[in-house]
Structure formats: C-alpha cells, structure tokens
Lab assay of single mutants.
Amino acid sequence: MAASAHGSVWGPLRLGIPGLCCRRPPLGLYARMRRLPGPEVSGRSVAAASGPGAWGTDHYCLELLRKRDYEGYLCSLLLPAESRSSVFALRAFNVELAQVKDSVSEKTIGLMRMQFWKKTVEDIYCDNPPHQPVAIELWKAVKRHNLTKRWLMKIVDEREKNLDDKAYRNIKELENYAENTQSSLLYLTLEILGIKDLHADHAASHIGKAQGIVTCLRATPYHGSRRKVFLPMDICMLHGVSQEDFLRRNQDKNVRDVIYDIASQAHLHLKHARSFHKTVPVKAFPAFLQTVSLEDFLKKIQRVDFDIFHPSLQQKNTLLPLYLYIQSWRKTY
C-alpha cells in the first residue's frame, strides 16, 4: 500500500487533545456564526451592495467568503475584532481572482478581468477605488493598515499566469505559485494584525505553500471532471502515471504514490512551519489557523491510503469550527 511504503514521513496525529474535556472553552465561534445575517447573495444585490440601503460592502465580502471560501471565513471569524473586516476584504479579493479561471470560457475574457483587478489595485493606492464592493472594502483595508501593494499585485499576476490550462511542470513550480498567492495572502494578513517579524514571515511562507499544494490536491477530482489535470508532471512521470490515469480515476498503487509524494511535500512544509513556532510572536498565530484544515485533509487522505478520489475527501468536517476554536484558544498553530 502507498501509505505503508512511505509511512515514515507522517508524524503522530495532533488533533487529539488529552485532558481537553476537563476545561470548557468559552463560547465564541458558534455564537458569532449565529449572529451573522444570512440572506442569499443575488446578482441584483451584488450590483447594489455598495449603494445606500443595501447590506453594505462589508456584508457582501463576508457573504462571498462564506459561500466560496468557507474555511477562510471560519478562520477570519476568530481574528481580533479590529482586524476582521480587513481580512474579510482581503480574502474576498482572493476569491474574486480565484473564480475568474473557472467562470470564463475564453482566456481573453479572463485576461480582461485580471486587467480590471490590476487597475483596481492601482486605483486603490491612488484613493480612487471603483464602485465595486470588494474594491471598496480592500481600499478601506489598505488605508487602515498601510498594506504593501507588492503582495496584492503578486496575487493578481500569479492568478493571471495561471489562466493557462497547463499542469505544473514540477513541484517547485506549484510551490512558486502557492508562494505568490497563498503566502502573499498571509503576509498581508500579518500586516493587518500589525506583525512585522521575520520568523512570522518564514512560517507564512511555508504554510502558504502547504495551502497551495493541498488546494491543488483537493481540486483534482473537480478538475478531472472537466478533463483537466494540474498535478506536477515530474512526480507523475517518476511513477509512470499519465494524465489519462487521473481522468479515468485510476486507483492503482502508482497513482496513489503520486498523491503521496505531493501530500508529503505539504506535510513537510507544515511540519517545518511549526518547528520554530517558539520564535514566532503569539500575536501572529491567528493568521495561521488554516493549519487546522490543512492537517485535517492530510490526515483524511492518509486514512484512505492516498486515494484522491475517495468520497470521504469531499465531505465537510462538521467539527472544523470546534477544532479551529480550540486551536485559537490554545494559542498555537
């Protein structure tokens, strides 16, 4: 089996927390979720979201995140109150960019949308954001926290390059993509939290790379249903696996070995980020709550012996909000 052949990389499970039942964490995340308004986002309300009498641009960002990046939404709820709305805006910006690729039928249209967001970032730093909910909220975040323009532009530029429907040539190319998107998002989150620390940035770099790799793995069944495969070609070739094997949902050992190798790289990034947690300011830990969902996925895929098409991998963990709150309460990542 794939797991038994390579099992030495995987460390002990961390979500089991001995003695936790003896201490009762304060009510927090679930209460916040219940208090949030929840009407559906419609095209009509989106168009009017920044106008008078609408929910408001902040509510639009929150709803977009809740629907399109639920794990990011849950993590954002546990940030300090003064930072929450800015991170909602930042993550909503990322969602807007991420959904361009799947929402257009022609690359030219995707490039036009990316050009809109490039100009939007430029206009935000000229205090002239367009009348668009996410743009307005992002402008507020930039003004409030003096966010670095370079990180925002890196996210747009990398998403634009990724409009080509090509597999990553190697794991390094996937890591570079993750660094310029997910890690950049974390650098900006640290700025919102008021953290300027080399060790925190180092952790953000590795956690962002782990996030990018896990996202690529999780999306494999969806991409396969659209006749697309984006997994690193070098690892596929190493194990003699073709793109057609993934399109046919082949579950042979060599296919699972490909998934094992890729998942192991995410695991190593996560492990390395945690190896120097004592040197990272505690104030930075809330920015890294996504490690909970990353670890949850890596454990699940290990349990199914790296069968990327196993139905259990597509099921939401209903206990994730609780695990996130516990992680926040324990002040760790």
Rank of each mutant, 00 (worst) to 15 (best):
S45V: 04
S45D: 04
V46L: 14
A47W: 14
A47K: 05
A48W: 15
A48Q: 15
A48L: 15
A49C: 15
S50H: 14
G56A: 15
T57Q: 12
H59T: 10
H59G: 15
Y60K: 06
C61H: 06
L62G: 08
E63W: 11
R66C: 06
K67G: 07
D69Y: 01
D69M: 00
Y70G: 05
Y73D: 02
C75R: 05
C75A: 12
L77E: 02
L78K: 03
L78R: 03
L79V: 14
P80F: 02
A81Q: 15
A81L: 13
E82V: 12
E82F: 14
S85E: 09
S85P: 14
V87M: 11
A89L: 00
R91P: 00
A92V: 05
F93T: 01
N94C: 05
N94W: 04
E96A: 09
L97T: 11
L97N: 03
A98G: 10
A98S: 14
Q99M: 15
V100L: 15
K101S: 15
S103R: 09
V104P: 07
V104T: 15
E106H: 12
E106A: 12
G110P: 07
L111I: 12
L111D: 10
M112K: 10
R113H: 08
R113I: 07
M114S: 07
Q115R: 10
W117L: 06
T120M: 10
V121W: 00
V121C: 06
I124K: 01
Y125E: 04
C126I: 15
P129R: 10
P129C: 11
P129M: 13
P129T: 08
P129N: 03
P129S: 05
P130F: 03
Q132C: 10
I136H: 14
I136S: 07
E137R: 04
L138N: 00
A141I: 04
K143C: 10
K143S: 08
H145Y: 15
L147V: 05
L147E: 00
L147N: 01
L152Q: 01
M153P: 00
I155E: 00
I155Y: 05
V156H: 03
V156I: 09
D157H: 11
D157G: 13
E158Y: 13
R159L: 06
R159M: 06
K161C: 12
K161G: 13
K161Y: 09
N162Q: 09
D164A: 12
D165Q: 15
Y168S: 04
I171F: 11
K172V: 13
K172L: 12
K172N: 13
E173F: 02
E173P: 00
L174Q: 04
L174R: 02
N176G: 14
N176F: 13
A178R: 00
E179P: 01
E179Y: 04
T181L: 08
Q182R: 07
Q182C: 13
S183M: 01
L185G: 02
Y187C: 05
T189S: 10
L193E: 00
G194K: 09
I195D: 00
I195G: 03
I195P: 02
K196L: 08
H199I: 11
H199N: 09
A203N: 01
H206Y: 04
I207F: 03
G208H: 01
K209R: 09
A210P: 00
A210I: 02
I213L: 12
C216K: 02
C216P: 02
A219Q: 05
T220P: 01
T220N: 03
P221T: 14
H223K: 07
G224P: 04
S225N: 08
F230L: 15
F230P: 09
M233K: 04
H239Y: 10
S242A: 12
S242H: 04
E244I: 03
F246T: 04
R248L: 06
R249H: 13
N250H: 15
K253Q: 15
K253L: 13
K253F: 14
N254S: 15
R256L: 03
D257A: 10
V258A: 13
I259W: 01
Y260K: 06
Y260H: 07
D261H: 09
S264C: 13
Q265K: 12
H267T: 08
L270S: 03
R274Q: 10
S275G: 14
F276C: 06
F276M: 12
H277T: 11
K278L: 14
T279F: 08
V280W: 02
P281I: 00
V282E: 08
A284H: 00
A287E: 01
A287I: 05
L289H: 06
Q290P: 09
V292C: 11
V292I: 14
V292F: 09
V292T: 10
S293T: 13
E295D: 11
L298T: 03
K299S: 11
K300H: 11
I301G: 00
V304P: 00
F309H: 07
H310P: 03
L313H: 02
L313T: 05
Q314H: 09
Q315F: 09
Q315A: 11
N317C: 10
N317Q: 15
T318D: 15
T318I: 09
L319M: 15
L322E: 00
L322K: 01
K331P: 09
K331N: 12
K331T: 12
T332M: 12
Y333T: 00
Y333L: 06
